[in-house]
Amino acid sequence: MAGLDISFYGSSLVSAYWNGAATYYRGVIRALAARGHRVTFYEPDAYERQQHRDIPDPDWARVVVYANDEDSARRALEQGRNADVIVKASGVGVFDSLLEAGVLEVRRPDATAIFWDVDAPATLASMRENPGDTLRPLIPRYDMVLTYGGGDPVIRAYREFGARDCVPIYNALDPDTHHPVPADPRFAADLGFMANRLPDREARVEEFFLKAAAKLPGRRFLLGGNGWGDKPMPGNVNYIGHVYTADHNAVNCSALAVLNVARDSMAAVGFSPATRVFEAAGAGACVITDAWEGIEQFLIPGEEILVARDGAEVAAHVDALTPERSRAIGEAARRRMLDAHTYAHRAGEVEALLVNGAHAGRVPA
């Protein structure tokens, strides 16, 4: 198909600071660019993200940073109005309501409008529970809703809100960005974990990470991410603060195992593997994850990933893990990712949707 001009309104493409969607955006957009599409990414100067950039403006997308005020947001909408495809992502963090309505107002009559939800549990909860939710009446006006996870429950929920179609475009691996590198002594650990401190993740982090650390006082645990500085921790936990994306491969390659802990809402919905799972697997790391429905769609438990139901099981996995088994699991996971779960695969799915709405993974109504 001929390359499309795409206007994309999201949180940030150039900064992962308090922005867990950055890896996902980069992977999808870079792969779309490789297929000949031209993406302009509009992002606000908010939450100190521009002061904590971890990549320069890329050559595979045009980045427009607009000031954190209503007039600037409206000007950004005007700049993107002539695109073939116009995307509003969830969780921009500022002027979301304005942008959600605005992309529908400015788009060309023949353009495709997409709401792309990177946190479907939170979005759906707001639409259900908040009578004043401004997105809910707009959903039927979008040509389609894409989500980065959720499976059948999310698809059905969006259709109940009037979505014309809802299709998960799952997280994936960009093998040019996340790949094996030599171990770095700065990040040496028996179990490494990276996540920002969020209210609906904290209790699960206490259970799956801190409890496991307390059970294995002779083992080394590494914690990276924003917001944990005042959190009481066992003495064998090394807290290193925010980890820039340039160091993610080194963290994933320097620990015996890497932990994934879903937020409460993501675990409850299922079929929502975090970007961290793909990053770590792409680096050949042995991943231990909390249990959630749908894991088998991405990685085989016991062969390509280890699954734990609580902190005691995390501790048991770490205690029993040898370097040889860790390496075997990590290599198997990397092979699976390269075979079926790269952003090149995801971009092909998005392109098919834009052409004719076809998607092999759709769940029938």
Score class of each variant (00 low, 15 high):
8 F>L: 13
203 A>V: 13
195 A>F: 06
289 T>W: 12
116 W>C: 02
115 F>T: 04
41 F>A: 11
227 G>Y: 12
351 E>V: 10
135 L>W: 15
134 T>M: 14
33 A>I: 04
103 V>P: 06
233 M>P: 04
81 R>Y: 00
126 S>Q: 14
141 R>N: 13
92 V>P: 08
197 R>D: 15
216 L>K: 01
336 R>D: 01
36 G>V: 08
78 E>G: 03
38 R>E: 13
211 K>F: 00
358 A>V: 09
168 P>C: 05
55 I>H: 01
290 D>Y: 09
352 A>R: 12
10 G>Y: 04
177 T>H: 12
359 H>I: 09
141 R>S: 02
236 N>D: 14
118 V>Y: 06
196 N>V: 08
74 R>T: 11
62 R>G: 03
33 A>H: 15
358 A>S: 09
147 T>C: 12
255 A>K: 08
323 P>C: 14
321 L>V: 08
143 D>S: 10
107 R>C: 11
350 V>G: 06
216 L>G: 10
352 A>K: 13
153 P>H: 12
164 R>F: 03
239 Y>V: 06
6 I>G: 02
242 H>Y: 11
258 V>R: 01
282 G>Q: 02
301 P>G: 01
89 A>K: 10
113 A>F: 05
90 S>G: 05
329 I>P: 00
218 G>H: 12
306 L>D: 00
87 V>I: 15
1 M>V: 11
19 N>Q: 08
143 D>I: 02
73 A>V: 03
277 V>I: 15
151 G>Y: 09
30 R>D: 03
94 V>S: 11
358 A>M: 06
126 S>G: 07
332 A>G: 08
158 Y>L: 14
200 D>M: 11
312 A>H: 00
